[in-house]
Design a binder for these strands. Structure first.
Length: 454
RNA sequence: GUGAUUGUAGCUCAGUUGGUUAGAGCGUCGGAUUGUGGUUCCGAAGGUCGCGGGUUCGAGCCCCGUCUUUCACCCCA
């Protein structure tokens, strides 16, 4: 039998892992710096927790887990006869998490009594979606989320803007755009054109504007049941260009009659004002009225980060959600806002643009190469001392040929080797070789430690 | 879920209108070299041609099914 991987999943070898860890470490450092605390939740959730939070499409993409044991035994024949759709909830009551936000909301509701609000948590775990894999799209991928729940303050939105900038710059992704919008503006537009409550369909269609163009967007809206009058009323939407300030002003005058839209515009303005007060240098924020995002739980600000110059979808996304916790039965209204970084897409972007620092894949710094048992007796205390000094060091476990050990050093890209033969043992002067330049010099064991550290 | 596409050695790929024993480069292992690698030379190992069925005297090649890869749509990180 040939072993194989489950569709849409990957192994990560040592080289990939050290690059991935660089991404995780960078993001984690920023999250901690902003005062977020770690949280982990199970891979599986009850399907009742997951369904209905992501829209119809999202429900479709949930991985479901068969009940344990003889899961089909208790299904009554008459249920079976009603079709597969009716059987499904009887045999699968659990599913793999689809994102980190919904499990977080579930956690908040369950632990409400013990949490000091506002509660800020970060979470870096895999999520699963039963999508067809393609470029930048996997069935198992990691998200790094930071969310604040229990406050309406727009300062949180502003902090997200700051975190995005910090993460991108620390990763070395200089060329990015942080797109922002507000769901209330979309809701207001739907109201203004006489199609209240249809902002979902509206959002999905106009989200494609830069991809398929104005005419096809309008065609799609007709398909989705928008009246011709609504489509005509929507036309000013396509003139929303210019600076952020100009667009906001145009929106304000276009949507004067919609209270919701005005609120959304005011929120956006306030968020941008706060960001400016922070003194964020060279903000890469872009107001995009067509930005919608499919997840149905967003109610306020929405964010999306796009790496420029690569054809990979958004590498980060987030927004504010007002009703997620109430979906779990709390009477208390808890508003949350958060951001999610997609590690796998960030990896693809950084790989494509060669942005990983040279030492991101660096493992062992020094390999000790004793020629015989006597050399090994000198090498062992040095090995111990190197490690105590914080240097990643190892020794080839067999007393093999020198060629073999140096080949090993090359294969692992170990930059330094210390050669210890009878001559070195007698003089105490060890031969340190730089494997990149081929240069070799002699020094004492103590000197080796500071040499390889510098 | 819709439409394409891919699969031959560990990796990247050749393989003619269907014809006898399926090849190359790289990598791996061994040697040239018992104290020096990444260069060179010599040698070796490594294949159910994704899987199942069919057509044929004969299938890596043609047909059907299936799985997988990649890509677009939908949607999304």
């Amino acid at each position: 039998m040939k072993p194989s991987l489950v569709k849409g999943t990957r192994d990560f070898g040592p080289e990939q892992m050290s690059k991935r860890l660089f991404i995780f470490d960078t993001i984690r450092a920023t999250f901690k710096r902003f005062g977020f605390l770690p949280l982990e939740t199970p891979a599986m959730e009850n399907l009742s927790t997951l369904t209905g939070k992501y829209g119809d499409e999202g429900d479709q993409l949930l991985f479901k887990i068969l009940n344990s044991g003889d899961f089909a035994a208790s299904i009554a024949p008459e249920v079976l006869a009603t079709g597969s759709k009716a059987v499904l909830p009887k045999i699968a009551e659990k599913g793999l998490r689809y994102d980190l936000t919904v499990p977080f909301a579930r956690y908040v509701v369950m632990n409400r009594h013990a949490l000091a609000l506002p509660f800020k948590r970060y979470q870096m775990q895999p999520v699963w979606r039963a999508d067809r894999p393609q470029k930048g799209r996997y069935r198992e991928f990691y998200q790094c989320d930071a969310d604040v729940v229990g406050t309406d303050s727009l300062l949180c939105e502003a902090e997200i803007v700051l975190m995005v900038h910090e993460v991108m710059r620390n990763l070395g992704i200089q060329n990015f755009a942080l797109k922002v919008n507000n769901r209330k503006i979309l809701t207001g537009i739907a109201e203004a054109i006489g199609a209240p409550g249809m902002e979902g369909a509206l959002a999905v269609a106009i989200d494609k504007l830069d991809k398929i163009g104005q005419e096809k967007v309008l065609d799609e809206l007709r398909d989705r049941g928008f009246a011709e009058s609504a489509i005509t009323a929507l036309l000013p939407m396509f003139t929303m260009q210019g600076t952020t300030e100009e667009v906001l002003n145009k929106l304000k005058s276009w949507l004067t009659q919609s209270e919701t839209a005005q609120k959304g515009i005011a929120e956006l303005e306030e968020t941008l004002r706060l960001v400016a007060q922070y003194g964020l240098e060279n903000p890469q924020i872009e107001l995009d009225v067509t930005l919608a995002r499919g997840l149905s739980y967003y109610t306020g600000a929405i964010f999306e980060v796009k790496a420029l110059g690569v054809s990979i979808g958004s590498i980060s996304g987030g927004g504010r959600y007002d009703n997620l916790t109430s979906a779990f039965g709390t009477s208390e209204r808890l508003s949350g806002v958060g951001i999610s970084f997609g590690v796998d897409r960030i990896y693809d972007v950084m790989e494509e643009l060669s942005l990983f620092p040279a030492d991101a894949g660096q493992g062992t710094t020094v390999l000790l190469v004793p020629f015989d048992a006597e050399g090994r007796s000198v090498a062992l205390p040095l090995l111990n001392a190197l490690r105590r000094a914080g240097v990643s060091a190892e020794m080839y476990p067999d007393l093999a040929k020198v060629k073999k050990m140096l080949d090993y050093a090359n294969a692992k890209r170990i930059p330094y080797v210390v050669l210890i033969g009878s001559e070195e043992v007698q003089t105490g002067q060890l031969a340190v070789k730089n494997m990149l330049t081929g240069e070799q010099q002699k020094m004492t064991a103590e000197a080796v430690i500071s040499f390889v550290q510098g």
